[in-house]
Design a binder for these strands. Structure first.
Length: 618
RNA sequence: GGUCCUGUGGUGCAGUUUGGAGUGCACGCCGGCCUGUCAAGCCGGAGGUCGCGGGUUCAAAUCCCGUCAGGACCGCCA
């Protein structure tokens, strides 16, 4: 039906007769003898010169046959790639008429997100969505190519899986053939891929859909996509190298934009820099201690300062708790008292008892540090000197500090570090809600230089305790403890590190992985520490334990959150912008109105009866 | 489960604080004029259950209560 794409026509096509197909983006009328129609397809728009009598309204689908010609001198449009040419002597065939679109498709016009989802098939015509989905496709292709190049084998695992009550809430699927029994949709292919390792697949990957029935967020949907990886006979760094290869290849593929689907030579663009020296590796402890987060945003400099020693034996009660972490905000001394109070409130909301602040002034004639703070009168000259020095603060800066148990102090200051930061381009780095009041922002340009990766390794094996005082696995219960710490598994579980690692990009957790337990005895003892009885373990994970007893290779793996990765690469703040048909925050789909009640007949066939009103929560 | 923000012709907003006639802006839509525009321009027109329900009041888009929907966040997400 067509010989060219709209967006690819250039001056060198002048004189050619071409056929185009697309949607009417704009129509500009000049009376009965002249009208301009911008015809849009996935590649862009081109101007068609029509007789004014030709009927062609917004979003109608046309086939246009005409001759490409250079535009008359002076009427070129340098704002669009096809602006040097236009299509003349047009023969128009209306392929499809259209109702008036529910919202403007122009990039500059905002549209209500609910309306965009209800009419997603229209919204997808917008350049933003076209670009995002094409980038997603390039990312998936590059991830697959990297995996295959590295000798991995793509294997599909079941969507109808077995309940393994542990971790995220699962979606249940009733069995028709065996009434009263259920499959679940997998939260991840975790156990399946370990079984593949026992099965000698050796290097597995899958672009896997995962499903978790947990509340939705801008970075979480019920169903999401992971690049799921598992390999045998590997170290943690082997796994990380494989992941890094795939992720960096995908980044290059994503940012080397071929221009909305127009065929191009991948080598023609400017080569993108890789990551010189590889991706920085931080221990979990260092990440917490220096950045106050297990997913530090390394675009922001400003590591936390440690004032613990300064006040350890002091009389300054507000600062002498087990740990004291501080943050320097350059130029922050001019923040208003109201703004400071807001920071104090924020720190309290995050769990701190309070927040100390110090405005750093010019040194006095004797060269002593000068601070403005309610706590200043309690400080000695040495302490003033020490805290200014530890935080590398200059006159005009603001110092914030929290004293408490180490982890809480780190977490509170880490949150404030992000929320008070601005990126070099002036964009706030912190939570969109806190800093932008929920205002939607346009996607911003992403370059390799604006992406800061790091690995966080040596996570704790356990993360606190549950209601019964039993340790809770920080990752999942199949994670290999650090070999140096295994002997403390039962005596001091909280101190045991895991062979677990996260990949972090710009403060988002891009994925996580670990070396798994392949020794059935060790797995059994970990279940024991977790308070899972032998019988319980057998009934829930018996098939895995039996597999481990059948000759299990040492193995480990990783999973990359593809939706988050693509959103970051596209400069989007919500993964909904990189998913064709996402759900709303309450789990609904405005397009189809799902979820909906089922026919009583269908329920009966499944052996189900309803309690409570349809549509209500539990 | 909780906190906060939003809901006004098809779309995006203002109006709500301090109650007084569905008032306003921009886009879109329909019609007219217009042969070089490019988010065309000019003129005219149509289009409203102010999310829904209740309350206060002589009078409610506006104040109060409830509720629904969308969004951000906390909890949750091994």
């Amino acid at each position: 039906m067509r010989t060219h794409l709209c967006g690819e026509l250039r001056a060198e096509h002048a004189g050619e007769t071409v056929k185009l197909c697309g949607w009417v983006a704009h129509r500009r009328e000049h009376g009965e003898h002249l009208a301009f129609v911008d015809l849009r397809d996935r590649s862009g728009v081109v101007q068609c010169v029509l007789d004014g009598s030709v009927e062609a309204r917004s979003e109608w689908v046309l086939q246009v046959e005409g001759q490409v010609r250079r535009r008359p001198a002076g009427s070129e449009n340098s704002d669009i790639p096809t602006g040097e040419v236009e299509l003349a002597q047009c023969e128009v065939t209306v392929l499809s008429k259209a109702e008036t679109p529910p919202f403007g498709l122009d990039e500059r016009v905002a549209a209500d997100e609910h309306a965009r989802l209800r009419y997603r098939y229209v919204d997808l015509r917008r350049k933003r969505m076209q670009d995002n989905l094409r980038m997603r496709s390039r990312v998936l292709q590059a991830l697959r190519e990297s995996m295959l190049r590295q000798g991995f084998c793509e294997v599909e695992t079941p969507l109808l899986w077995t309940p393994t009550p542990e971790g995220a809430r699962e979606f249940a699927v009733p069995s028709r053939l065996r009434r009263g029994e259920f499959y679940v949709l997998p939260q991840s292919p975790q156990i399946a891929k370990q079984l593949l390792m026992v099965g000698g697949i050796d290097r597995y990957f899958q672009v896997a859909r995962c499903l978790r029935d947990e509340d939705l967020r801008s970075d979480r949907q019920f169903e999401f996509t992971q690049l799921d990886i598992e390999a045998s006979f590997v170290s943690a760094s082997d796994v990380r190298d494989a992941v890094a290869d795939a992720v960096l290849a995908a980044m290059r593929a994503a940012l080397d934009d071929p221009g909305a689907g127009v065929p191009h030579d991948p080598g023609a663009g400017a080569p993108l820099a890789g990551i010189p020296g590889g991706i920085e590796v931080l221990s979990w402890h260092d990440a917490m201690d220096r950045y106050g987060s297990d997913k530090p945003d390394l675009r922001i400099g400003r590591p936390l300062a440690d004032w613990t020693e300064v006040f350890a034996r002091s009389e300054v009660r507000a600062l002498s708790a087990p740990a004291c972490k501080a943050l320097c905000i350059p130029g922050g001394a001019n923040l208003s008292r109201a703004r400071l109070d807001a920071l104090v409130d924020r720190a309290k909301a995050l769990g701190a008892a309070g927040l100390a602040w110090f405005r750093v002034g010019e040194r006095d004639p004797a060269g002593k540090a000068v601070l403005d703070s309610p706590l200043d009168k309690f400080l000695t000259d040495d302490q003033r000197e020490a805290i200014v020095g530890e935080a590398a603060a200059a006159p005009g800066d603001l110092l914030l500090a929290v004293a408490s148990e180490w982890r809480l102090a780190c977490e509170v200051m880490g949150a404030l570090r992000v929320e008070t930061a601005s990126l070099p381009d002036g964009t706030p780095a912190g939570s969109p809600a806190a800093l932008r009041g929920g205002m939607p922002t346009a996607a911003r340009a992403v370059t390799p230089g604006s992406l800061a990766y790091c690995w966080v390794v040596d996570f704790p094996l356990f993360d606190g305790v549950d209601e019964e005082g039993m340790p809770v696995p920080a990752h999942h219960p199949f994670t290999m403890p650090h070999p140096e710490d295994i002997e403390r598994l039962s005596s001091d579980p909280a101190s045991v590190r895991a062979l677990a690692y996260d990949l972090v990009l710009n403060g988002w957790e891009l994925g996580s992985g670990s070396i798994r337990v392949h020794d059935p005895d060790l797995q059994a003892s970990i279940f024991d520490v977790l308070g899972i009885s032998e019988q319980d373990a057998e009934s829930r994970f018996g098939f895995l334990l039996r597999a481990l007893r059948s000759g299990a290779p040492p193995h480990g793996g990783f999973a990359v959150g593809v939706d988050r990765f693509v959103a970051l690469l596209a400069g989007e703040e919500s993964i909904r912008e990189v998913i064709a048909f996402p759900k709303t925050q309450s789990g609904g789909d405005p397009l189809t109105d799902a979820p909906k009640p089922l026919d009583a007949r269908v329920l009966a066939e499944l052996g189900l009866a309803l309690r409570g009103e349809p549509g209500s929560g539990n």
